[in-house]
Design a protein around this nucleic acid. Structure first.
Lengths: 338, 338
DNA sequence: TTGAAAGCGCTAACAA
DNA sequence: TTGTTAGCGCTTTCAA
């Protein structure tokens, strides 16, 4: 046995002992943060292999105050939009050797705050949070210390955090204009919950287009239900009950649109001839349904990527840059339903 | 200033100083792992609030060798099946104060191994891995140290790891029997990739049912494509080209079934009258499509939960129990397509 | 090019 | 009921 000193050393110290160098040198041989002679490096390398040594990230993190981990706080990973975001985020984080832990809040305020505390206790290097309800000020205090936060959607407040959002407004504006150009001017809108989440922006784009064409929005044509298939059923039923029903309908998301599609079919209305239907989000089912949904793609993947890039630059910046808002364009896709 | 000693202490030591007790006592006041007089506890509590103290999990983990984190290694979080699993896992882990980090491997062997190494460096307390390709022996060595591993699907090897899987075989058997009972005996099967993944079990269930009814499986009726919508298009086209085409077709997953649905529609075949179609998985789109898919639900959420429970018990057990295989029942759902 | 020493912030014997 | 002490395994001045 060539072992020197206490044979029970672990980790870097064991390697150091075997290689006959100091722990410092092993550390530097590994990190490359200081020149190490190639002879030494070779001995260290050999010792590492011999011992099957694996550096302990935990210890390194405690020392450096860097965990190389970010938290992704979202309502529900089961909502198909968020996996796209998560994937985008991870695809930019991964190469930089960062990982992410996903926290499902179900949109619950206390759960959100709880995770934020938890994550700050775990010393994550950053967090991206998608929250419709939490007052941004609150998570600012929850994280108190200066850990970078980027909000996914919501309203930009340069005092609080960076914001990454999609350009929903332009999306629905384009969709509406498309309809208008085809000569349809009586266009309904089925919104999900109002005053919360992305619905408002989407309605705004619809109004923009109407206004742009010198049309006044008929308030009867805007109905509010919720972001579900049933919401679509209810919404379209209401619209169809109008004395003068719309010839086209924009929906605040694809689930609503799919519900609406069902109603149209049940009533023998042919889509898009009798009634054009446009969704929003481009979830997987949108292209699977018949007729395939014309919709606006909500670029979750790109949003996730943008969050990742932003976070990374925040984490590595020396002097704090001013907060930014990043708007990712959304894309209008024409399929069969309009 | 009531501060004693070095005023620059941080963390628990700062609290201890302010409260006039030892760090040990603060630690125990927090963890409850040792009785603390209520007077002391109150002083500690007050100091904590005064300082806005937040325990540093990292330091605790380094000391206890417990990170309260598990890794979920999957091909792709964007595949709607995995978010269900993730959610099930997190819903049982959360209350036990465990978190999970999700690693997307895209089914790539090296990426899988890389994550396993990475996770072991981060000292996760357990991992659940869904891998079709990696030889289980390899990740056993990758994790070398005794960190609990549960496999999600695959083949059980008591030497290697626990296994949680769904009872796909019974699922397709029931589906086939349902068809048989309705007097349809010429039943096709469109498989995804064979020899890999869950397809084999699903085919086996189909064969079980046929055999159970004294029928011989016609090899022409079993076609192999891939797990996509296009796979369904190709598969059904081939089946329909047979001299004696099937009156019903089982699909290895819902995407295939949806592709098949499209072919049937294009050819003017009415579903289920002319051709019954059964899917597998029960993805969201399955119930959104027209006619709604009769399918077998792949209980991802329950699988995730089972993984979580198993992992937790492994993590907390003193003496290693024998490895187990847990089979979660799948459920056959009759909707409109069969 | 290399080492010694001092922690990062916490927990857990052991001792009182 | 409480405190002392010794680390967990690493990184990083500072000094040679």
């Amino acid at each position: 046995m060539a072992q020197t000193g206490k044979s029970e050393r672990r980790g870097i110290a064991a390697v150091a002992a075997l290689a006959g160098v100091s722990a410092t040198t092993v550390s530097h041989a590994l990190s490359g943060r200081r020149p190490v002679s190639s002879a030494t490096r070779a001995r260290v390398q050999k010792a590492i292999e011999q011992l099957g040594y694996r550096p302990n990230q935990l210890a390194a993190s405690l020392r450096t105050q860097r965990t190389h981990t970010v938290a992704l706080v979202i309502p529900d990973i089961t909502n198909p939009y968020y996996p796209m975001v998560a994937r985008g985020l991870q695809d930019v984080l991964g190469p930089a050797d960062y990982h992410s832990v996903i926290c499902n809040t179900d949109g619950d305020h206390d759960t959100e705050l709880g995770y934020l505390e938890e994550m700050s206790a775990r010393a994550v290097d950053g967090v991206v949070i998608a929250s419709f309800r939490t007052d941004p000020v609150e998570f600012k205090t929850a994280l108190d210390v200066g850990i970078p936060v980027v909000m996914l959607g919501g309203t930009f407040d340069p005092q609080i955090a960076d914001l990454v959002m999609s350009d929903d407004r332009t999306g629905t504006r384009e969709a509406t204009e498309y309809l208008l150009k085809r000569g349809i001017s009586r266009i309904g809108f089925i919104d999900g919950e109002s005053g919360v989440g992305p619905g408002d922006q989407r309605v705004a784009g619809y109004h923009d287009a109407l206004r742009g064409h010198g049309l006044r929005a008929d308030p009867d044509l805007l109905v509010t239900t919720d972001y579900t298939r049933q919401g679509g059923v209810d919404g379209l039923s209401r619209l169809l009950g109008l004395p003068e029903p719309p010839r086209a309908v924009l929906c605040a998301n694809d689930m609503i649109a799919i519900g609406a599609l069902g109603v149209a079919r049940d009533r023998g209305l042919s889509v898009p001839e009798d009634l054009a239907i446009v969704g929003f989000d481009d979830i997987e089912a949108a292209s699977l349904v018949t007729p395939a949904l014309t919709t606006v793609v909500n670029p979750g993947y790109e949003l996730g990527q943008a969050c990742g890039r932003l976070l990374l630059s925040r984490i590595n910046e020396d002097v704090p840059e001013p907060r930014v808002q990043i708007v990712i364009p959304s894309r209008f896709i024409v399929r069969a339903s309009a």
